[in-house]
Amino acid sequence: MRAFYLEHPDTFSVEATVLDRRGDAVLLDRSPFFPGGGGQLADRGTLTWAGGRLGFAGVEVDAHGAWHRFAGTGEPRGTVLLEVDAGFRRLMSELHTLAHVLNALVYTQHGGVLLTGAQLSADGSFRVDFDLPGADGAALRKLEGSMNDVVRQDLAVTAGYLPRAEAESILGMFRSRSVAPPPSPDGLVRVVEIAGLDRQACGGTHLASTGRARLARILKIDNKGRHNRRIKVGVGEA
């Protein structure tokens, strides 16, 4: 079974059944919560049942499944209502979409350079690190205009799946030097495509098109070691 938040990206409220409990965590038969990963923060939200309401605090995965941790006291049981903070999810999807746009521009303009790190932030900013020794800061700042051109073009953002071996055979499908999204339970790799611009493996959430993002600003460019160049980008008030 593929992740609910990927198959139903616009569903932020679902009923689920508590299968088991341990400490501050419950095992559920389904969940709309994105657990975090790949630089994207975990969803925010709540679990409500007859005995009260708790805030979502994270996910721990083991052989039994995904244990959802909740902050507060209480023992959820039976049927529960899970509600994702839709505004926060949208922010993460917006930042992740813009990060793909920036990654695509750097990748094509700098000879297939790889990511060395990425992080989305709750303040409406994100940073991406690239292996770009000697890159000119002024030239990198010009990417702001190119990013916003892509936003204005309102390119469709879609997702599909490929067998792992096939994905690995495609140049540029995996953009990080050190990590890669794990395959789904059926052995397939999720691929996110921005029409006419980019195609890469990714397990995060995104907007349906680039035009749904706000215009972006490059806030800062730093040298992080001999090779890494960090580009920090903000939207809104960030």
Rank of each mutant, 00 (worst) to 15 (best):
V101Y: 11
D29A: 03
A180Q: 13
A238E: 09
A63G: 15
S169F: 01
D29L: 02
D149A: 12
C202E: 05
P181K: 15
R53K: 13
A104N: 02
V59L: 10
V18G: 09
A57I: 02
V150L: 08
S176M: 06
L19D: 07
E168W: 05
D149C: 03
E15R: 04
D131T: 03
V233H: 09
T11H: 13
T11F: 12
V151P: 09
R69T: 15
L81N: 04
A201H: 02
G134L: 10
N228R: 01
W67K: 05
F174C: 02
L162G: 03
I170T: 12
D10Q: 11
D20T: 02
L54C: 15
D85N: 13
Y107C: 06
E60M: 03
P181I: 15
A213N: 09
N148E: 04
A118L: 02
R230W: 04
H64R: 14
F88A: 14
V192P: 11
R199D: 01
F70K: 03
L188P: 07
L82A: 03
R30E: 04
E144C: 02
D131H: 13
V128Q: 10
E193M: 04
E168N: 06
N148D: 07
F130A: 03
H8F: 10
R89A: 13
E168M: 14
G39L: 08
A16R: 11
D154K: 11
R214K: 12
T210N: 05
E144S: 05
G45P: 09
H227P: 01
H100I: 08
W49C: 00
G225D: 07
L219S: 07
A135G: 12
G187Y: 08
